[in-house]
Amino acid sequence: MLKIGAIIVNVADRHRGAEFWAKALGYEHDEHNQDFLFDPSGKGTRVHVDETDRSHLDLWAEPGQAQAEVERLLALGATKPDWVYPEGADFVVLADTEGNLFCIIGD
């Protein structure tokens, strides 16, 4: 089972973007990284504002299930774009049937 772990929002100015989204959603800044926002009620999805990454979803897989989820999504029509991964990456980049990128996080 997948869940939306974070929504990544591309912004030109991360400080301005983080302030806007925090106020718009009633979220708070993570004390360790002001670019990560969270719902203080614990019900909402985390938001990460980023100046270099494009807007996309991070989908979190249950422990030990990331590869199975990747295979399931590929069978549903997702594709695996060419991607340069950093060493030790804990994610897989996929594209939906319309070409929108998203990440599977886990394992």
Rank of each mutant, 00 (worst) to 15 (best):
L94K: 03
T97S: 12
L37R: 13
H48K: 15
S55F: 02
N33Q: 10
L73C: 13
A18D: 01
A22V: 03
R14D: 14
V93S: 02
H56R: 13
A89C: 06
P40E: 09
D30H: 13
K80G: 00
Q65M: 15
D96Q: 05
R14T: 14
A61L: 09
D96N: 02
E31Q: 02
A24H: 08
E71V: 05
H15K: 13
P63T: 02
R54L: 03
L74D: 03
D96Y: 07
D90H: 09
N33F: 08
A78D: 00
G99C: 00
E71A: 13
C103F: 12
C103Y: 11
P86K: 00
P81H: 05
D35A: 15
A78C: 09
E71R: 04
A66I: 05
E71D: 15
P40S: 11
D82C: 00
D50F: 13
W83N: 10
L57Y: 13
G99H: 01
D30Q: 09
K43P: 00
G77V: 07
D96G: 00
E19C: 11
R16C: 03
P40R: 08
D39N: 09
K80N: 02
E31A: 05
D58L: 04
Y27Q: 05
Y85G: 01
T52N: 14
A89Y: 10
R14A: 15
L74N: 02
D35V: 05
D35W: 01
H32M: 10
A22M: 13
A24I: 04
G64I: 09
E62M: 12
V70A: 04
L101N: 08
G17R: 03
Y27E: 04
G88R: 04
Q65W: 08
H29M: 10
R16Q: 14
L59P: 13
H15T: 14
E87F: 12
G99I: 01
A66Q: 07
D39M: 05
H29P: 01
V84I: 07
R54V: 05
V49Q: 03
G99W: 00
V84N: 06
G42I: 06
T52A: 11
E98S: 12
F38R: 13
S55G: 09
W60N: 12
I104T: 12
G64A: 12
K43C: 03
